[in-house]
Design a protein around this nucleic acid. Sequence first.
DNA 1: ACACAATTTAGAATTATTCTAAAATGGCTC
DNA 2: GAGCCATTTTAGAATAATTCTAAATTGTGT
Lengths: 155, 155
Amino acid sequence: MRAIIGHNWRMKTKPQHDHSAKLLQVTELLQRSGIRPTRQRTALARYLFDGCDKHMTAEQVHAAMRKAKTGVSLATVYNTLHQFTEAGLMHQVVIDSNRVYFDTNIHDHHHFFDETTGMLHDVPAKHVHISRLPKLPAGRELDRVDVVIRLRAGK
Amino acid sequence: MRAIIGHNWRMKTKPQHDHSAKLLQVTELLQRSGIRPTRQRTALARYLFDGCDKHMTAEQVHAAMRKAKTGVSLATVYNTLHQFTEAGLMHQVVIDSNRVYFDTNIHDHHHFFDETTGMLHDVPAKHVHISRLPKLPAGRELDRVDVVIRLRAGK
DNA sequence: ACACAATTTAGAATTATTCTAAAATGGCTC
DNA sequence: GAGCCATTTTAGAATAATTCTAAATTGTGT
């Protein structure tokens, strides 16, 4: 049964358009990050790094995979999101009490958090100027500065 | 030694002594916030609002209560921390993936998050200048801006 | 094709938190 | 202070997100 797809298991799942190009890009992206491009990881990467910035929880990503009929277990979604994060391909954003969002936008940016909808929105770094930072404690260096602009319903 | 500060519970104080004075202050604080000062709530308030800024998880607060031999159940600790937060007596800070910190410092300030120790430290607002903010989406108003300066081990 | 390492997986385990319904307490009125 | 009703507290069950585990599968070099 697998013989049919034979040498190229990658063709099994279909993106909308742009097959080969996107696939090449994604497998290369993973390889360059030292991550072996398995079927599951490629499917996830293809979905996540399609050029649209996404803020999603692991469960949401898993649901998207189900919908796309790509067999990727929840455990693998968690593992892979963590790997991608560690490789710097995406970020984790923790804002809501018990929800971790994975953010595929790795450009310098900040966030609006809309308390009425629970949604997260990007704010390009250029729209926030931080003109002064405190002196860092000894023996530590700056990892990054997260700015979350919390919004509530207003006039 | 404490009579001097008497009327101002905000003043930096050492915990330990000052029973009567502190009690009056605390019950008043609760009443002014529309919270009935029961035994448990008073015990928690006394511990939390002793003048020292604290960043604690609910479990940690519960542990402190046990140590102080004050019978307060975990459920009550959760309930009460939420009430206090809603009344504006303290804030919630969410940073670490699955840990909610309650912060007794309600002055304008920001945080260092030390990734190596998992600890949170205050940064007075004056040490961080945000000189530009984006235009807010329609129908929303600013609740607050949280700045978390993430630190990692460095030279 | 073969073997060995890496990966995936289902389901169990863990952890922080919330819920529930019963017991205790607080604040009234008489 | 006894009686009463609303509020609060509580132990333990329930939930939800995440991690762990150990077995099955897949990938890769030979």
